[in-house]
Design a protein around this nucleic acid. Structure first.
Lengths: 139, 139
DNA sequence: ATTAATTAATTAGCTAGCTAAGTAATTCCT
DNA sequence: AGGAATTACTTAGCTAGCTAATTAATTAAT
């Protein structure tokens, strides 16, 4: 088998979109999108965080996060409060979000399992290691 | 090493965005975006195609393609003409696009090489094979 | 102590995914 | 042949990436 660089990137982009699409479909039942789910996941894992901390974890630009968080606030998933440093906003899950989390997590996990159905544990680790090997450029 | 499904998908999405971002930066010099580049690449490889054929190759929804192609027409990359079947539009590269193609391709290739700098040929094939293993759901 | 530089977040504006719904041409079926 | 179903593409409207430029608060430096 010979794979051109182009084919490799083409496939990677397609799978990335595929995963996003599939998860978004599942998340629609919960009135969520994948980007919002990752923020929810992150806050549930680490507790209240500043936007800066979230965007470092998610590796997303500030304006993207600002907007998504605004939507999540409108929909009652999170609350923003001022930090001691008054430039900062501390983001926190609402009670509702915490309450719904386990159920949402379960449906996401089911989907993830399905997407990786044909993988052994070793293959997952291989894939992870290989992805890490892609040169991080910039910054 | 133990990798959760979540971590694996998280990394995959991040790398996908990283690649897109990096390529978009390079393509800015040519007044192109990655999505437009893939259409250009596709048309250069296969010659004139209907939108249907393009979207099957790129695995993208019709409205997405319609809009991107409209932008590319505005910018002089492609031309649309009617097919024999009058529902179809046949998309063709302009002379300018064909003329510029080699130069653009070169800069994209350089970037792809850089992103895969740390990969052996075997590792590229491994990555390709593993990505293929992700369950294709739907349709 | 003031001023300059940095930092956290925001606003505005771009591209590109997506779905749902619509239009026009073609094909299928009786 | 005529009506129903399908097909190719489009339009409208949503989310989420991105950059560039702005605002307000804090830190650094003179």
């Amino acid at each position: 088998m010979t794979v051109s660089n182009h084919d490799l990137f083409h496939l990677l982009q397609q799978k990335s979109r595929h995963i996003k699409k599939i998860l978004n479909i599942k998340l629609t039942d919960h009135d969520l999108y994948m980007a919002q789910w990752s923020i929810l996941y992150c806050l549930h894992k680490f507790g209240p965080m500043t936007q800066k901390e979230i965007l470092i974890y998610l590796n997303v630009e500030a304006p993207t996060l600002t907007r998504t968080i605004a939507r999540m606030e409108d929909n009652g998933w999170i609350v923003r409060r001022e930090g001691e440093d008054k430039r900062e906003r501390i983001i926190e899950l609402t009670e509702t979000a915490i309450g719904n989390f386990p159920h949402i997590k379960e449906t996401v996990c089911e989907m993830e399992v399905e997407l990786l159905r044909r993988f052994s544990t070793e293959e997952k680790e291989q894939l992870y290691t290989l992805l890490q090997k892609i040169t991080p450029i910039g910054k």
